[in-house]
Amino acid sequence: MTTAPPSPDAEALYARLLDAVRAMLAGLPAGQAHLVGIHSGGSWLAERLHRDLGLPGRPGMLDISFYRDDFARIGLHPQVKPSAIGFDVDDQHLLLIDDVLYTGRTVRAAMNELFDYGRPASIRLAVLIDRGGRELPVAADFVAAQVELAPGQTIVLSRDGDRFRLDFEAPQEPRNA
């Protein structure tokens, strides 16, 4: 039986992410930088970052379900939400936020969707957890923590009110016939 390592403190990682996003935004032209969260964990993070940084307007939210290259294989996620980008992305600096970076396919899908909205000046990526296992050449500009997981194991961000929690889900043990 595989045992999960202790879950990292999601609130401590969020504090690191907040500091990094603040620093990244400080280096971008005022009024031309926007947060965009990837549904669902990235959207939760982007909403809280946006509020904690006192940014005007609302962050962008992407549900990349229809942009995934494995859509035909995995089908539609049961909680598909419409994407909402309430600002012009042309010539803007976008900070893409996600909870867990794994294969890079979610980030690729998010970038494809963003380009359907226009041509941003830049896209930067900030994530709470990098679990390795990249299948595409995608790297985050900021990672709050790197976590090594066993094959088949996942890490899930959840929220309780305004607080975040990370939980490991152990791989399913094969059943004996």
Rank of each mutant, 00 (worst) to 15 (best):
T3Q: 11
A4G: 01
A4S: 01
P5I: 14
P5L: 06
P5R: 10
P5D: 02
S7F: 06
D9S: 05
A10F: 03
A12L: 13
L13H: 12
L13G: 05
A15P: 14
L17R: 10
L18T: 11
L18I: 13
A23M: 00
A23Y: 00
L25A: 00
A26H: 07
A26T: 03
L28W: 01
L28H: 01
P29H: 02
P29V: 00
G31M: 08
Q32E: 15
A33K: 13
A33I: 13
L35G: 08
L35S: 11
L35V: 10
G37D: 02
H39P: 08
S40A: 15
G41L: 01
R48M: 13
L49E: 02
L49M: 03
L49W: 04
H50S: 00
L55I: 12
R58N: 10
P59E: 09
P59C: 07
G60K: 09
M61C: 11
D63C: 01
D63W: 05
D63P: 13
F66P: 07
Y67H: 08
R68F: 05
D69K: 08
D70P: 09
F71T: 08
A72Y: 14
R73Q: 15
I74Q: 06
I74N: 06
L76Q: 15
P78W: 10
K81F: 00
S83T: 12
S83M: 10
I85D: 03
I85Y: 00
G86T: 11
G86A: 14
F87P: 08
F87H: 03
D88A: 15
D90Q: 10
Q92Y: 04
H93Q: 02
I97E: 08
D99E: 01
V100P: 09
V100R: 01
T103Q: 05
T103P: 10
G104N: 07
R105C: 02
A110H: 11
M111T: 10
M111I: 07
N112S: 13
L114D: 07
F115N: 09
F115P: 04
D116A: 06
D116P: 10
G118M: 05
R119T: 15
R119G: 07
A121T: 02
S122L: 05
R131F: 01
R131I: 00
G132T: 05
G132S: 02
R134W: 11
V138W: 10
V138G: 12
A139D: 12
A140Y: 13
A140G: 04
A140H: 02
V143K: 09
A144Y: 05
Q146M: 05
E148T: 15
E148Y: 05
P151R: 09
G152I: 00
G152M: 04
Q153I: 10
I155K: 11
S158W: 08
F164C: 01
D167W: 03
E169T: 13
E169D: 12
E169Y: 06
A170W: 05
P171G: 12
E173L: 14
E173V: 07
P174L: 11
R175P: 15
A177E: 08
